[in-house]
């Protein structure tokens, strides 16, 4: 039941418009790049200092000086630029990045997000996530709707340490597409083709209102 990881990414790719500069996080967000048509003029930003990121290199083109924020070897497209970390986060914090897509462990109806730390377990660090959620013009979360034991990850209030407050615009899960209605709940816009709106509402801890034009997801 619900979407695959690739389908979540495919649905999020519909949010990307021509001319956008986009930062994609690790995990499902990275898959979004596979569904952005070549004809669309989109520049992918990698916060370690690359705008215009291309696909993984052929073996003969691997360059240890050219990596992405996940430390993977990548390529640079025509029109790409390299820059310092300060310039990179000037782009991010300064509101010059049109869209960021990130994974999350929890989101809530205030637009808060938690995705960097589970107390008592090993703490890896927030990397650039706090800057991205604070600075990108639009923040979309890609995540599973529920945890492995079935608990909702769309909450009234996040329980884990926050990455940012009031910064999430939209959540795309394996169950549906929901917008944050700050302080009130989530607005359900689309649901997975093999599910119903009622099933999504039942799987969500926070209140959910169904948008007047809500519908099953189309690809």
């Amino acid at each position: 039941m619900g979407l695959t990881r690739d389908q979540i990414a495919q649905r999020i790719s519909q949010e990307v418009k021509s001319g956008f500069c986009v930062n994609l996080g690790i995990g499902i967000p990275t898959l979004v790049a596979n569904f952005i048509p070549d004809s669309m003029n989109v520049m992918l930003q990698s916060e370690n200092g690359l705008l215009g990121m291309g696909p993984f290199p052929l073996e003969k083109d691997v360059d240890p000086d050219l990596i992405n924020a996940g430390k993977q070897t990548v390529t640079a497209l025509k029109g790409a630029s390299f820059f310092s970390s300060a310039d990179s986060f000037a782009m991010i914090r300064g509101g010059h990045i049109d869209l960021t897509v990130l994974g999350a462990m929890e989101v809530d109806m205030n637009g808060d997000i938690a995705n960097w730390m589970v107390p008592g377990k090993m703490v890896k660090g927030m990397g650039g996530a706090m800057d991205l959620v604070a600075g990108a013009r639009r923040v979309i979360v890609a995540m599973q709707h529920t945890s492995k034991d079935g608990a909702s990850k769309l909450l009234k209030k996040c329980t884990l340490p926050l990455t940012g407050k009031g910064c999430i615009d939209r959540v795309v899960t394996d169950f549906g597409v929901l917008d944050v209605v700050k302080g009130k709940g989530f607005r359900l816009l689309e649901w997975a083709p093999d599910m119903t709106a009622e099933q999504v509402i039942a799987a969500t801890e926070a209140p959910v209102e169904v948008a007047p034009d809500a519908r099953p997801m189309r690809f």
Binding site: A86, S88, F89, I92, R93, G128, M130, G135
Partner: peptide, 23 residues
Amino acid sequence: PQGTLAERMRAGGAGIPGFYTPT
């Protein structure tokens, strides 16, 4: 945070003891 770290180094090197950030 990564952007704050970059800016803290930049500020330190530029003679700026502190700065305000939304991050």
